[in-house]
């Protein structure tokens, strides 16, 4: 879109055999912005994060960060440029203490040295409410703390773009509220946040913009409530929810099929 965009995807495509995870995806994220991503399972959301962070090579298309192409740059190098992600299933370094987890990120990803790295690591733990567990082994943490540690580790790399992959999944309502508050504070510090989430409530209270993906295609992009109100999104996303509620029982077990989510076409 604009030259000022922090992250710009241009016609990014990726497939695993017959499975399309990105089909000519183009969108941008401005510096300091918030963007939510929703979509059914298999829509390519997590793969998208893999391609932006560098874990997953793209088949075609270009990804620009801060005005330069990062395709062909390794994950660690992209992290040092300011892109980092969290994992849907938390993957802390179990054999390291909580503090060591974030210290590694601050030193390597953030490029900080000695006292600066320690300060940044402690700040990230304080931000995510883990300061009192700094000396525990990460492997001993419970689910909420592990999710927070994912965020803390990401934060320690001093990112300009933080990719959050379902950090609210599996948490209770009060826990979700705490995480939302953390994410809002992070964004308030000027870090752009892209958040994949099934817990729509959490997204709506955090993001300014929402995109909906299905089978690797962008099918809606805009104001979160407006996007969720669109018929093609409801069909995909809320449609299944209302089906669960008994509204449209024929959709409960029906797999998402290509025509159903075609942005141009209607329903089959």
């Amino acid at each position: 879109m604009t030259d000022a965009a922090l992250l710009q995807l241009n016609a990014v495509s990726k497939r695993f055999g017959q499975v399309v995870v990105a089909d000519g995806l183009s969108f941008s994220v401005d510096a300091g912005a918030t963007l939510g991503i929703v979509g059914p399972n298999g829509a390519g959301k997590t793969s998208l994060f893999g391609m932006i962070s560098g874990d997953l090579p793209v088949d075609s298309g270009d990804i620009e960060f801060d005005g330069r192409s990062v395709v062909g740059i390794g994950t660690a190098e992209r992290c040092r440029l300011g892109i980092t992600r969290t994992f849907q299933v938390p993957r802390p370094f179990d054999g390291l203490t909580v503090f060591e987890n974030v210290l590694v990120a601050a030193q390597q990803g953030g490029g900080l040295r000695r006292a600066a790295a320690v300060d940044a690591a402690l700040a990230a733990l304080a931000e995510t409410g883990l300061a009192d567990r700094a000396n525990m082994m990460a492997g001993q943490l419970g689910l909420l703390a592990r999710k927070r540690l994912e965020v803390a580790r990401g934060l320690s790399t001093q990112p300009r773009l933080l990719l959050l992959d379902e950090v609210a999944g599996g948490l209770t309502d009060p826990e979700v509220a705490e995480l939302v508050a953390i994410v809002r504070r992070i964004n308030g510090a000027g870090i752009a946040v892209v958040w994949i989430e099934h817990v729509v409530r959490a997204l709506l209270s955090t993001v300014d913009r929402l995109i909906c993906l299905a089978l690797g295609k962008l099918i809606a992009d805009g104001n979160p409530r407006e996007v969720l109100g669109r018929p093609e999104v409801k069909e995909l996303f809320l449609g299944t929810e209302s089906a669960i509620a008994g509204d449209r029982p024929e959709r409960v077990s029906e797999p998402v099929s290509e025509p159903a989510i075609d942005p141009a076409g209607g329903n089959p």
């Binding site: 660690a76 580790r153 790399t157």
Partner: peptide, 24 residues
Amino acid sequence: TSVGRQIRAVADDPEAASVSGVST
């Protein structure tokens, strides 16, 4: 040491280490 922490992090989870900026 810092190198030692990185070695342990990579041994634990190379992918998570690389998104933390470690050249695995």
